Simulated assay, not measured.
Amino acid sequence: MRLLLRVQDGLLTVLALIGALAIVTLMLHVVADVVLRNTVNSPIPATYEIVTHYYMIAAAFIPLAWVERGGGMVQVEVIDSFLGPRGLYWSDRTVDVISTVIYGALAWVTWLTALRNFDTGTFVLAQTLRVPTWPAYFLVPLGFGLATLTTAIRIFVPKQELRK
């Protein structure tokens, strides 16, 4: 189990770096576009398409597992004050199982969508420039897949273990 937790932490670190890189690149790209547009009247082509199809998807879906690792996504606290330690344990496990199933289903469906878009070579047109968008579709199942792994581990490993 320790090996699985180390693998998960390694993957979360890689995804955190990818997410941070996406945000920094987004900022640099947009700033460069604004500066070039206002100084030499020559904006960077397809900035809007790249921002919406790459950077925003990375910013939205890559951090899912990171947030789940910290326990910041799904929490059921409506009846927690009425439950004892054993009831809390089972309530947490039930939420973890439901979250795992939902994340797993989302990962599977978005994986199939990514494969379909890869096969067809999905792109958008920015004036006359073709911007391939199919690679960004793989970020979504990646985020959901690692969130699935994170919640699945939480089913079997007590929260005290995860915080060590």
Rank of each mutant, 00 (worst) to 15 (best):
F61D: 13
G10W: 05
Y54V: 01
L5Y: 07
V24H: 09
H29Q: 00
D9N: 15
T13C: 11
A16Y: 06
V40S: 07
D33R: 01
R6S: 11
V14W: 11
L11A: 14
V35I: 12
V51L: 02
A22C: 11
M56L: 10
Q8K: 05
A20C: 14
E49I: 05
L11F: 03
I50Q: 00
L3E: 09
A58S: 12
Q8Y: 05
P63S: 09
I44A: 01
I23E: 09
R37K: 04
F61M: 07
V35Y: 06
D9F: 06
G19A: 15
A60E: 05
S42G: 13
Y55R: 07
R2S: 14
I18F: 14
L5G: 00
I23L: 15
I50P: 01
L4I: 13
Y55W: 04
V30T: 05
V14A: 13
A59G: 11
V7N: 09
A60K: 05
P45W: 05
G19W: 07
P43S: 03
N38P: 04
T52L: 09
R2I: 10
D33C: 02
Y54W: 01
T47P: 04
R37N: 12
I62V: 15
A46S: 07
L26N: 14
L15V: 10
Y48R: 04
L4S: 06
M1A: 09
V14S: 12
M27S: 15
L15E: 15
H53L: 01
P45S: 04
Y55Q: 06
A60S: 14
L5R: 13
T13E: 13
A22L: 06
S42P: 10
A32Y: 00
H29M: 00
A16H: 06
V31T: 04
R2K: 13
Y54D: 02
I44G: 14
V34P: 04
A46Y: 02
V35T: 06
G10T: 07
R37C: 05
S42K: 07
L26M: 15
I57L: 13
M27H: 07
Q8I: 06
R6P: 11
P45I: 03
Y54F: 11
I44D: 10
L5V: 12
E49K: 02
Q8W: 04
L5F: 02
N38C: 02
T39R: 13
L26V: 03
L28G: 14
G19E: 12
A59L: 15
L5N: 04
T52P: 03
T13R: 08
L17N: 14
I23N: 14
P43R: 00
A16C: 11
V30F: 01
L28V: 15
T39W: 13
V40Y: 06
P43I: 01
M27G: 15
I18L: 15
Y48P: 01
V51R: 06
A16Q: 12
A46W: 01
L5W: 04
M1C: 14
G10N: 12
L36M: 10
A60L: 14
T25P: 02
V24T: 12
L28D: 12
A22W: 00
I18R: 00
V51K: 04
T52G: 12
H53Y: 08
P43H: 01
L36K: 11
I44L: 07
S42R: 07
P63N: 13
P43F: 02
Y54M: 02
V24N: 09
I50T: 04
F61H: 11
E49V: 08
D33G: 04
H29K: 00
V7F: 00
L5M: 08
P43W: 05
